[in-house]
Amino acid sequence: MLIGTLSDSHGLGQRVVSYYLSAAGVHVISLGITVPPSVFVKRASQEHFDAIAISVLMYRSALLVQEVRDLLDREGLSVPILVGGAPFNMDRTLWQQVGARAMGSNPAEGVAMVKGWAGLAL
């Protein structure tokens, strides 16, 4: 799966989630921090991913998830987006507003979601 911190520079959350996913046997490619929407989409168009995990801290970055979804759709890529981070924890419906498939409020939830989507045993 593909993971990154969208737009903002607060990268601890995605690193922790990456460790959990790797420990659970998921192959993780990280794009790092301050990743623009177009970079997620460009990478996703180059190889198959079962999911894209997007981490944010700032509210303005959370809203940019919709731009990632729109760009993926334009490219015909149906890969699901998993989101996590403070804005989603504070507004439990925000993930739906920005085109994500689901949110994870902690790393364990994220692992369960991604393994389910990838058809891996939990």
Binding site: Y59, P87, M90, D91, L94, Q97
Partner: peptide
Amino acid sequence: LNGIQMVR
């Protein structure tokens, strides 16, 4: 008051 929810 929840500032994030307040947006909508």
